[in-house]
Simulated assay, not measured.
Amino acid sequence: MGTNRENGSLYTKIDGKVAVVEFGHPASNSFTSELLGRLTAELDKLSENSNISVIVLKSEGDRAFCAGASFDELVAVSNLEEGKVFFSGFAHVINAMRMCSKIIVGRVQGKTVGGGVGLAAACDYVFATEASAIRLSELSIGIAPLVIAPAVERKIGAAAISELSLAPTEWKNAYWVKEKGLFSKVFDDITELDKELDFFAQKLAAYNPDALEELKKVLWKNTSHWDKLLLERAAITGKLALSDFTKNAISKFKK
């Protein structure tokens, strides 16, 4: 199902027991609130679909995987409630991925920033290309990666998330990301990645779906408090987004 390009697009294609969910936006596959809401609803729907066992999450094109939250919407945040609602978008998606009964395999074909890193971290297994460097740029625009931190830290640990978030202008290459445990496999190019990913997803989908579901619960143990935690973090981030520091940084960034 597509939508107008301004809010991005979301398509789901089901191939046997594998559902491929593809999101896209002209601004480097960034997320508007509406698109985040639609992705959350789609993951909830697929979680209930007994005909599928595996979800592949991917984005459009052959360049950036995801540039995080929509800059235009971030600039437009004008009060605390709007700020909380805006940053809750990623909170809801991460919680939907966590609670989803299906194994989610991420396909990261290029650079990933901010909320996009959180999205990749909330996948259960991630295929990436060599071009898939990551960056948590939040501090450079006056906010902090608070909402996605639990998902990222769960994969790479406190030391690595410190290294990543405190150097907001520095890219970490795909091999650093794999070494830290956020990427499972790194390939030379997209063609090779897609061939291996397709093989992997079909193989995974052939296993006992009940076993996959029980394993997923175990992999995400001790995260049930995230329902509340991520929304609290969204409220704090919303407050930071209203600061003069952030407004100035963003307007400079946009120019």
Rank of each mutant, 00 (worst) to 15 (best):
G2W: 06
G2L: 06
N4T: 09
R5S: 12
Y11F: 05
T12H: 00
K13V: 03
I14S: 03
G16M: 09
V20D: 00
T32A: 06
L35F: 09
L36M: 14
L36H: 06
R38Q: 13
S47H: 08
S50T: 14
S59E: 04
D62F: 10
A64H: 14
G68I: 08
S70W: 05
F71N: 00
E73Y: 06
A76I: 01
L80I: 03
G83Q: 04
F87I: 07
F87C: 10
A91Q: 03
H92Q: 09
H92P: 02
N95F: 10
R98G: 01
M99S: 14
I104P: 09
G106V: 13
G110V: 11
V113C: 11
G114T: 08
G115W: 10
G115S: 11
G116Q: 07
L119E: 05
A122R: 06
F127D: 08
E130K: 15
S132R: 05
I134M: 10
R135T: 11
L136M: 15
L139Q: 04
L139C: 00
L139E: 03
A144G: 07
L146T: 04
P150I: 05
E153W: 02
E163R: 03
P168I: 04
E170Q: 15
D188A: 15
T191A: 15
K195F: 08
F199Y: 08
K203E: 12
K203M: 08
N208K: 12
N208W: 06
P209A: 10
D210C: 10
L212V: 10
L212A: 08
S224G: 01
S224V: 10
L230Y: 14
A234L: 02
I236G: 01
I236F: 07
G238M: 02
K239Y: 09
T246L: 05
I250K: 04
I250T: 04
S251P: 05
F253N: 04
